[in-house]
């Protein structure tokens, strides 16, 4: 998406990204970015929280309007959970508790990819 923003901006359409993966967007480098420090999935505000969604969307418009240089990042002033910050660790967690499970999932995934490649080849042959 960050590459898309760069492309559109270079073609003359001013852009703003609203997102929660700060490092990915900032490494790519985009014109304007509203960072929402939430678990991935709801960058525009919590489900059902219309006031928050409106505030974040408004912040995106303000950023679009007022940024004076590229790579402008503005952080929305919202906290996902005042008590439990554990979401940061739980997503894509790797630890001694799940290492074997992840290794097995990797093997299964490669097998599925191999099976898909095989099916595709058969389809291509059948089409010839």
């Amino acid at each position: 998406m960050s590459l898309g923003a760069r492309f559109l901006e270079a073609a003359g359409i001013p852009t703003v990204i609203v997102g929660s993966a700060r490092d990915i967007v900032e490494e790519c480098g985009v014109p304007r970015f509203v960072f929402v420090d939430f678990p991935l999935g709801n960058p525009c505000g919590k489900p059902g929280d219309i006031a928050m969604q409106r505030a974040i969307t408004t912040l995106a418009l303000d950023t679009l309007e007022r940024a004076f240089a590229p790579r402008t990042t503005v952080q929305a002033p919202f906290v996902w959970d005042e008590v439990d910050d554990g979401w940061r660790e739980r997503f894509m967690h790797v630890g001694d508790d799940n290492r074997d499970e992840l290794a097995a999932a990797g093997v299964a995934r490669r097998q599925a990819q191999e099976a898909r490649r095989h099916d595709r080849e058969l389809e291509r042959e059948a089409a010839r």
Partner: peptide, 14 residues
């Protein structure tokens, strides 16, 4: 995305 933490049933959240 963080399926253990939230959902995307509300379109305006994303």
């Amino acid at each position: 995305w963080a399926k253990d933490e939230t959902h995307t049933d509300d379109l305006d959240s994303f």
